[in-house]
Design a protein around this nucleic acid. Structure first.
Lengths: 188, 188
DNA sequence: GAAGGTTCTTGATCCACATCAAGCGCCGGC
DNA sequence: GCCGGCGCTTGATGTGGATCAAGAACCTTC
Protein backbone atom coordinates (compact mmCIF):
# COMPACT_ATOMS: atom_id res chain seq x y z
CA UNK A 1 0.00 0.00 0.00
CA UNK A 2 1.30 3.43 -0.78
CA UNK A 3 3.00 5.69 1.75
CA UNK A 4 0.43 8.38 1.08
CA UNK A 5 -2.52 6.13 1.83
CA UNK A 6 -0.84 4.79 4.97
CA UNK A 7 -0.07 8.29 6.15
CA UNK A 8 -3.59 9.58 5.55
CA UNK A 9 -5.01 6.49 7.24
CA UNK A 10 -3.10 7.32 10.41
CA UNK A 11 -5.85 9.95 10.74
CA UNK A 12 -8.94 8.73 8.84
CA UNK A 13 -9.92 5.47 7.16
CA UNK A 14 -10.53 5.55 3.41
CA UNK A 15 -12.59 3.03 1.47
CA UNK A 16 -10.98 1.67 -1.67
CA UNK A 17 -13.46 3.76 -3.66
CA UNK A 18 -12.38 6.92 -1.81
CA UNK A 19 -8.72 6.10 -2.26
CA UNK A 20 -9.33 5.64 -5.98
CA UNK A 21 -10.55 9.26 -6.07
CA UNK A 22 -7.74 10.59 -3.88
CA UNK A 23 -4.71 8.70 -5.22
CA UNK A 24 -4.36 10.20 -8.73
CA UNK A 25 -3.87 13.68 -7.28
CA UNK A 26 -0.65 12.80 -5.47
CA UNK A 27 2.66 12.80 -7.31
CA UNK A 28 6.28 12.17 -6.34
CA UNK A 29 8.78 15.02 -6.45
CA UNK A 30 12.52 14.54 -6.02
CA UNK A 31 15.04 17.11 -4.82
CA UNK A 32 18.81 16.77 -4.51
CA UNK A 33 20.54 17.83 -1.33
CA UNK A 34 20.61 21.62 -1.09
CA UNK A 35 17.78 22.27 -3.56
CA UNK A 36 15.07 24.74 -2.64
CA UNK A 37 11.61 23.22 -2.44
CA UNK A 38 9.93 26.55 -1.74
CA UNK A 39 11.53 29.99 -1.91
CA UNK A 40 10.60 33.02 0.17
CA UNK A 41 8.15 35.13 -1.82
CA UNK A 42 6.73 32.27 -3.88
CA UNK A 43 3.19 31.09 -3.30
CA UNK A 44 3.27 27.50 -2.04
CA UNK A 45 1.06 25.39 -4.35
CA UNK A 46 1.91 22.02 -2.78
CA UNK A 47 1.17 20.13 0.37
CA UNK A 48 3.57 17.23 0.79
CA UNK A 49 4.25 14.05 2.70
CA UNK A 50 7.93 13.13 3.08
CA UNK A 51 8.89 9.70 1.77
CA UNK A 52 12.57 10.22 2.43
CA UNK A 53 15.05 12.93 3.26
CA UNK A 54 15.19 15.84 5.65
CA UNK A 55 14.06 19.38 4.94
CA UNK A 56 14.48 22.56 6.89
CA UNK A 57 11.92 25.39 7.09
CA UNK A 58 13.43 28.79 7.73
CA UNK A 59 12.88 32.54 7.72
CA UNK A 60 15.33 34.88 6.00
CA UNK A 61 16.05 38.10 7.84
CA UNK A 62 18.60 40.65 6.68
CA UNK A 63 21.20 38.22 5.48
CA UNK A 64 20.79 35.55 8.10
CA UNK A 65 18.44 32.58 8.33
CA UNK A 66 16.43 31.40 11.30
CA UNK A 67 15.30 27.81 11.25
CA UNK A 68 11.76 27.27 12.51
CA UNK A 69 11.28 23.58 11.83
CA UNK A 70 12.38 20.36 10.20
CA UNK A 71 10.50 17.68 8.28
CA UNK A 72 11.52 14.07 7.71
CA UNK A 73 10.25 10.61 6.78
CA UNK A 74 6.56 10.26 7.44
CA UNK A 75 5.94 13.88 8.43
CA UNK A 76 4.33 16.51 6.25
CA UNK A 77 6.30 19.27 4.60
CA UNK A 78 5.33 22.63 3.16
CA UNK A 79 4.36 26.16 4.07
CA UNK A 80 0.82 25.81 5.25
CA UNK A 81 -0.05 29.48 5.63
CA UNK A 82 1.01 30.40 2.10
CA UNK A 83 -0.72 27.27 0.81
CA UNK A 84 -3.98 28.24 2.50
CA UNK A 85 -3.97 31.97 1.87
CA UNK A 86 -2.31 31.89 -1.58
CA UNK A 87 -0.02 34.68 -0.42
CA UNK A 88 3.77 34.80 -0.93
CA UNK A 89 5.53 32.57 1.51
CA UNK A 90 7.45 34.20 4.32
CA UNK A 91 9.28 30.88 4.86
CA UNK A 92 11.66 28.94 2.63
CA UNK A 93 12.01 25.15 2.50
CA UNK A 94 15.24 23.48 1.49
CA UNK A 95 16.27 19.83 1.11
CA UNK A 96 18.98 19.09 3.67
CA UNK A 97 19.51 15.61 2.18
CA UNK A 98 18.30 14.09 -1.10
CA UNK A 99 14.54 14.03 -0.70
CA UNK A 100 11.46 12.48 -2.18
CA UNK A 101 8.12 14.08 -1.40
CA UNK A 102 4.63 13.02 -2.36
CA UNK A 103 2.69 16.17 -3.10
CA UNK A 104 -0.81 17.34 -3.88
CA UNK A 105 -1.74 20.69 -5.44
CA UNK A 106 -3.93 23.15 -3.58
CA UNK A 107 -6.80 23.03 -6.10
CA UNK A 108 -6.78 19.24 -6.00
CA UNK A 109 -6.82 19.07 -2.19
CA UNK A 110 -9.59 21.64 -1.89
CA UNK A 111 -11.51 19.68 -4.52
CA UNK A 112 -11.14 16.57 -2.39
CA UNK A 113 -12.32 18.49 0.69
CA UNK A 114 -15.58 19.01 -1.22
CA UNK A 115 -15.97 15.53 -2.69
CA UNK A 116 -14.52 13.23 -0.02
CA UNK A 117 -15.74 14.15 3.50
CA UNK A 118 -13.05 11.98 5.08
CA UNK A 119 -10.44 14.26 3.53
CA UNK A 120 -12.07 17.34 5.04
CA UNK A 121 -11.77 15.65 8.41
CA UNK A 122 -8.16 14.70 7.64
CA UNK A 123 -7.43 18.37 7.02
CA UNK A 124 -8.83 19.25 10.42
CA UNK A 125 -6.86 16.53 12.20
CA UNK A 126 -3.57 17.51 10.52
CA UNK A 127 -4.12 21.09 11.59
CA UNK A 128 -4.92 20.07 15.17
CA UNK A 129 -1.61 18.25 15.27
CA UNK A 130 0.30 21.18 13.80
CA UNK A 131 -1.27 23.61 16.24
CA UNK A 132 -0.47 21.43 19.25
CA UNK A 133 3.12 21.21 18.04
CA UNK A 134 3.35 24.99 17.81
CA UNK A 135 1.90 25.41 21.32
CA UNK A 136 4.46 22.98 22.73
CA UNK A 137 7.28 24.79 20.98
CA UNK A 138 6.06 28.18 22.16
CA UNK A 139 6.01 26.99 25.78
CA UNK A 140 9.55 25.68 25.43
CA UNK A 141 10.78 29.00 24.11
CA UNK A 142 9.07 30.77 27.00
CA UNK A 143 10.01 28.63 29.92
CA UNK A 144 13.42 27.17 29.08
CA UNK A 145 16.84 28.82 28.86
CA UNK A 146 19.42 27.98 26.18
CA UNK A 147 20.84 24.98 28.05
CA UNK A 148 17.44 23.46 28.85
CA UNK A 149 16.32 23.88 25.23
CA UNK A 150 19.47 22.09 24.12
CA UNK A 151 19.00 19.23 26.60
CA UNK A 152 15.37 18.90 25.53
CA UNK A 153 16.30 18.56 21.87
CA UNK A 154 18.99 15.92 22.37
CA UNK A 155 16.53 13.99 24.52
CA UNK A 156 13.60 14.23 22.11
CA UNK A 157 15.30 14.24 18.70
CA UNK A 158 18.85 12.91 19.05
CA UNK A 159 18.83 11.82 15.40
CA UNK A 160 18.60 15.47 14.26
CA UNK A 161 22.21 16.06 15.35
CA UNK A 162 23.38 13.48 12.82
CA UNK A 163 21.13 14.74 10.04
CA UNK A 164 21.42 18.52 9.92
CA UNK A 165 24.13 21.13 10.42
CA UNK A 166 24.69 22.35 13.96
CA UNK A 167 24.19 25.94 12.88
CA UNK A 168 20.66 25.07 11.76
CA UNK A 169 19.87 23.33 15.03
CA UNK A 170 21.35 26.31 16.85
CA UNK A 171 19.08 28.76 15.06
CA UNK A 172 16.12 26.41 15.60
CA UNK A 173 16.91 26.63 19.33
CA UNK A 174 17.26 30.41 19.07
CA UNK A 175 20.94 30.70 19.77
CA UNK A 176 24.11 31.33 17.76
CA UNK A 177 26.33 28.49 16.52
CA UNK A 178 28.95 29.67 19.04
CA UNK A 179 26.58 29.29 21.98
CA UNK A 180 25.50 25.87 20.69
CA UNK A 181 29.10 24.74 20.35
CA UNK A 182 29.93 25.88 23.88
CA UNK A 183 26.89 24.04 25.23
CA UNK A 184 27.97 20.84 23.50
CA UNK A 185 31.39 21.12 25.11
CA UNK A 186 29.98 21.97 28.52
CA UNK A 187 26.93 19.69 28.84
CA UNK A 188 27.77 16.01 29.53
CA UNK B 1 -29.82 36.05 14.68
CA UNK B 2 -27.53 34.84 17.41
CA UNK B 3 -23.89 35.82 17.73
CA UNK B 4 -22.89 32.18 17.59
CA UNK B 5 -24.65 31.55 14.30
CA UNK B 6 -23.26 34.74 12.80
CA UNK B 7 -19.75 33.83 13.90
CA UNK B 8 -19.94 30.30 12.52
CA UNK B 9 -21.40 31.64 9.27
CA UNK B 10 -18.33 33.81 8.78
CA UNK B 11 -16.78 30.46 7.83
CA UNK B 12 -19.55 28.11 6.60
CA UNK B 13 -23.23 28.52 5.77
CA UNK B 14 -25.71 26.58 7.88
CA UNK B 15 -29.25 25.66 6.81
CA UNK B 16 -31.96 26.39 9.35
CA UNK B 17 -32.19 22.64 9.90
CA UNK B 18 -28.47 22.40 10.64
CA UNK B 19 -28.60 25.40 12.95
CA UNK B 20 -31.46 23.73 14.82
CA UNK B 21 -29.11 20.81 15.53
CA UNK B 22 -26.15 22.98 16.42
CA UNK B 23 -27.78 25.72 18.50
CA UNK B 24 -28.87 23.77 21.61
CA UNK B 25 -25.29 22.79 22.36
CA UNK B 26 -24.10 26.36 22.90
CA UNK B 27 -24.59 28.08 26.24
CA UNK B 28 -23.68 31.45 27.70
CA UNK B 29 -21.13 31.67 30.53
CA UNK B 30 -20.43 34.87 32.47
CA UNK B 31 -17.25 35.78 34.31
CA UNK B 32 -16.53 38.86 36.42
CA UNK B 33 -13.33 40.80 35.90
CA UNK B 34 -10.38 38.84 37.27
CA UNK B 35 -12.10 35.43 37.32
CA UNK B 36 -10.24 32.43 35.94
CA UNK B 37 -11.93 30.80 32.97
CA UNK B 38 -9.38 28.00 32.74
CA UNK B 39 -6.65 27.22 35.24
CA UNK B 40 -3.28 25.66 34.48
CA UNK B 41 -3.51 21.91 35.03
CA UNK B 42 -7.24 21.66 34.34
CA UNK B 43 -8.47 19.92 31.21
CA UNK B 44 -10.27 22.45 29.00
CA UNK B 45 -13.76 21.09 28.25
CA UNK B 46 -15.03 24.21 26.44
CA UNK B 47 -14.55 25.94 23.16
CA UNK B 48 -15.91 29.49 23.30
CA UNK B 49 -16.87 32.48 21.22
CA UNK B 50 -16.52 35.84 22.98
CA UNK B 51 -19.69 37.94 23.12
CA UNK B 52 -18.11 40.62 25.25
CA UNK B 53 -15.07 41.29 27.39
CA UNK B 54 -11.36 40.71 27.08
CA UNK B 55 -9.47 37.64 28.22
CA UNK B 56 -5.79 36.93 28.48
CA UNK B 57 -4.12 33.58 27.82
CA UNK B 58 -0.89 33.04 29.71
CA UNK B 59 1.73 30.56 30.84
CA UNK B 60 2.85 30.39 34.45
CA UNK B 61 6.56 29.85 34.98
CA UNK B 62 8.23 29.85 38.38
CA UNK B 63 6.22 32.61 39.93
CA UNK B 64 5.82 34.85 36.90
CA UNK B 65 3.31 34.87 34.07
CA UNK B 66 3.95 35.22 30.36
CA UNK B 67 1.06 36.36 28.23
CA UNK B 68 0.75 34.53 24.91
CA UNK B 69 -2.51 35.96 23.60
CA UNK B 70 -5.70 37.92 24.10
CA UNK B 71 -9.29 37.26 23.08
CA UNK B 72 -12.08 39.78 22.65
CA UNK B 73 -15.47 40.39 21.06
CA UNK B 74 -16.09 38.11 18.12
CA UNK B 75 -12.92 36.07 18.52
CA UNK B 76 -12.71 32.57 19.91
CA UNK B 77 -11.40 31.85 23.39
CA UNK B 78 -10.07 28.72 25.02
CA UNK B 79 -7.08 26.42 25.19
CA UNK B 80 -7.31 24.45 22.00
CA UNK B 81 -4.55 21.94 22.62
CA UNK B 82 -5.94 20.84 26.00
CA UNK B 83 -9.43 20.78 24.48
CA UNK B 84 -8.29 18.50 21.64
CA UNK B 85 -5.96 16.20 23.53
CA UNK B 86 -7.90 16.10 26.83
CA UNK B 87 -4.63 16.70 28.66
CA UNK B 88 -4.09 19.22 31.49
CA UNK B 89 -3.79 22.73 30.16
CA UNK B 90 -0.35 24.36 30.19
CA UNK B 91 -2.08 27.71 29.73
CA UNK B 92 -4.45 29.67 31.96
CA UNK B 93 -7.24 31.96 30.77
CA UNK B 94 -8.45 34.89 32.86
CA UNK B 95 -11.17 37.51 32.33
CA UNK B 96 -9.49 40.91 32.12
CA UNK B 97 -12.90 42.64 32.04
CA UNK B 98 -16.39 41.32 32.80
CA UNK B 99 -16.94 38.73 30.09
CA UNK B 100 -19.69 36.74 28.43
CA UNK B 101 -18.68 33.70 26.42
CA UNK B 102 -20.82 31.34 24.38
CA UNK B 103 -19.40 27.88 24.85
CA UNK B 104 -19.76 24.35 23.56
CA UNK B 105 -18.49 21.21 25.29
CA UNK B 106 -15.94 18.97 23.63
CA UNK B 107 -18.25 15.94 23.39
CA UNK B 108 -20.96 18.08 21.84
CA UNK B 109 -18.64 19.64 19.25
CA UNK B 110 -17.11 16.30 18.30
CA UNK B 111 -20.65 14.93 18.00
CA UNK B 112 -21.48 17.76 15.62
CA UNK B 113 -18.32 17.04 13.61
CA UNK B 114 -19.83 13.59 12.96
CA UNK B 115 -23.41 14.66 12.28
CA UNK B 116 -23.09 18.05 10.57
CA UNK B 117 -20.40 18.03 7.85
CA UNK B 118 -20.42 21.83 7.68
CA UNK B 119 -19.20 21.89 11.28
CA UNK B 120 -16.30 19.56 10.46
CA UNK B 121 -15.32 22.04 7.78
CA UNK B 122 -15.78 24.92 10.24
CA UNK B 123 -13.33 23.18 12.57
CA UNK B 124 -10.79 23.02 9.79
CA UNK B 125 -11.23 26.66 8.82
CA UNK B 126 -10.91 27.88 12.42
CA UNK B 127 -7.70 25.92 12.78
CA UNK B 128 -6.30 27.29 9.53
CA UNK B 129 -6.90 30.78 10.88
CA UNK B 130 -5.30 30.00 14.23
CA UNK B 131 -2.26 28.45 12.58
CA UNK B 132 -1.76 31.42 10.28
CA UNK B 133 -1.95 33.72 13.30
CA UNK B 134 0.72 31.70 15.09
CA UNK B 135 2.98 31.79 12.03
CA UNK B 136 2.64 35.56 11.80
CA UNK B 137 3.44 35.94 15.46
CA UNK B 138 6.44 33.62 15.25
CA UNK B 139 7.88 35.67 12.39
CA UNK B 140 7.43 38.87 14.39
CA UNK B 141 9.28 37.41 17.35
CA UNK B 142 12.08 36.30 15.05
CA UNK B 143 12.58 39.34 12.90
CA UNK B 144 11.67 42.32 15.09
CA UNK B 145 13.47 43.80 18.09
CA UNK B 146 11.68 45.10 21.17
CA UNK B 147 10.97 48.54 19.73
CA UNK B 148 9.67 47.23 16.40
CA UNK B 149 7.38 44.75 18.20
CA UNK B 150 6.03 47.61 20.29
CA UNK B 151 5.44 49.83 17.23
CA UNK B 152 3.74 46.95 15.46
CA UNK B 153 1.35 46.38 18.32
CA UNK B 154 0.28 50.00 18.71
CA UNK B 155 -0.28 50.11 14.94
CA UNK B 156 -2.25 46.89 14.70
CA UNK B 157 -4.10 46.80 18.05
CA UNK B 158 -4.10 50.28 19.59
CA UNK B 159 -7.25 49.43 21.56
CA UNK B 160 -5.38 46.79 23.57
CA UNK B 161 -3.46 49.52 25.42
CA UNK B 162 -6.74 50.83 26.82
CA UNK B 163 -8.08 47.41 27.71
CA UNK B 164 -5.35 45.47 29.45
CA UNK B 165 -2.55 46.21 31.91
CA UNK B 166 0.76 47.33 30.45
CA UNK B 167 2.59 44.56 32.24
CA UNK B 168 0.50 42.00 30.33
CA UNK B 169 1.18 43.66 27.01
CA UNK B 170 4.85 43.82 27.97
CA UNK B 171 5.01 40.09 28.61
CA UNK B 172 3.03 39.44 25.42
CA UNK B 173 5.76 41.35 23.57
CA UNK B 174 8.44 39.40 25.46
CA UNK B 175 9.86 42.22 27.51
CA UNK B 176 9.71 43.40 31.11
CA UNK B 177 7.29 46.12 32.25
CA UNK B 178 10.32 48.37 32.74
CA UNK B 179 11.47 47.99 29.15
CA UNK B 180 7.90 48.58 27.96
CA UNK B 181 7.59 51.72 30.07
CA UNK B 182 10.89 53.08 28.73
CA UNK B 183 9.79 52.40 25.16
CA UNK B 184 6.55 54.29 25.74
CA UNK B 185 8.51 57.28 27.03
CA UNK B 186 11.04 57.13 24.20
CA UNK B 187 8.92 56.30 21.15
CA UNK B 188 6.86 59.27 19.87
C1' DG C 1 44.82 14.52 -3.68
C1' DA C 2 45.29 19.51 -3.59
C1' DA C 3 42.48 23.72 -3.28
C1' DG C 4 38.86 26.28 -1.55
C1' DG C 5 34.90 26.83 0.75
C1' DT C 6 32.06 25.96 4.70
C1' DT C 7 31.34 24.47 9.50
C1' DC C 8 32.87 24.02 14.03
C1' DT C 9 35.53 25.53 17.93
C1' DT C 10 37.56 28.65 21.30
C1' DG C 11 38.68 33.13 23.22
C1' DA C 12 37.90 38.23 24.02
C1' DT C 13 34.75 41.80 24.14
C1' DC C 14 30.25 43.99 23.98
C1' DC C 15 25.42 45.19 24.52
C1' DA C 16 20.31 44.93 24.79
C1' DC C 17 17.61 43.94 28.03
C1' DA C 18 16.82 42.04 32.74
C1' DT C 19 17.09 42.76 37.47
C1' DC C 20 17.14 45.40 41.56
C1' DA C 21 15.57 49.41 43.91
C1' DA C 22 12.82 53.26 45.34
C1' DG C 23 9.22 56.70 44.89
C1' DC C 24 4.66 58.02 42.94
C1' DG C 25 -0.06 57.76 41.71
C1' DC C 26 -4.20 55.73 40.96
C1' DC C 27 -8.01 52.78 42.04
C1' DG C 28 -10.91 49.82 44.78
C1' DG C 29 -12.62 48.43 49.21
C1' DC C 30 -14.16 49.12 53.79
C1' DG D 1 -12.71 59.70 52.41
C1' DC D 2 -8.83 57.30 53.90
C1' DC D 3 -5.87 53.32 53.64
C1' DG D 4 -3.36 49.64 51.32
C1' DG D 5 -1.67 47.66 47.45
C1' DC D 6 -0.76 47.06 42.85
C1' DG D 7 0.91 49.12 38.61
C1' DC D 8 3.77 52.44 36.51
C1' DT D 9 7.97 55.10 36.14
C1' DT D 10 12.83 56.13 36.46
C1' DG D 11 17.60 55.25 37.75
C1' DA D 12 21.69 52.17 38.80
C1' DT D 13 23.78 47.91 38.09
C1' DG D 14 24.25 43.10 36.33
C1' DT D 15 24.48 39.36 32.88
C1' DG D 16 23.34 35.75 29.30
C1' DG D 17 24.14 35.30 25.11
C1' DA D 18 25.57 37.96 20.81
C1' DT D 19 29.21 39.61 18.16
C1' DC D 20 33.85 39.79 16.53
C1' DA D 21 37.92 37.27 15.44
C1' DA D 22 40.99 33.63 14.10
C1' DG D 23 42.47 28.98 13.79
C1' DA D 24 41.30 23.90 13.01
C1' DA D 25 38.70 20.22 10.89
C1' DC D 26 35.89 18.96 7.57
C1' DC D 27 33.69 18.04 3.11
C1' DT D 28 33.31 18.82 -1.85
C1' DT D 29 34.86 19.22 -6.43
C1' DC D 30 37.84 19.15 -10.17
Amino acid sequence: MSLVRRTIERYVKLTDAEWAVVAPHWQPRDFPRGAFITRTGEVEPWFSIVEQGVQRLFVEHDGSEVCVGFAYDGSWSGVYDSFVTRTPSRFAVQAVTDSRLWSIRREALYGLYDTVPAMDRWGRLILEELLIGRATREIEQLTLDAEARYRNLIRRSPHLLQLVAQKDIASYLRMTPETFSRLRARVR
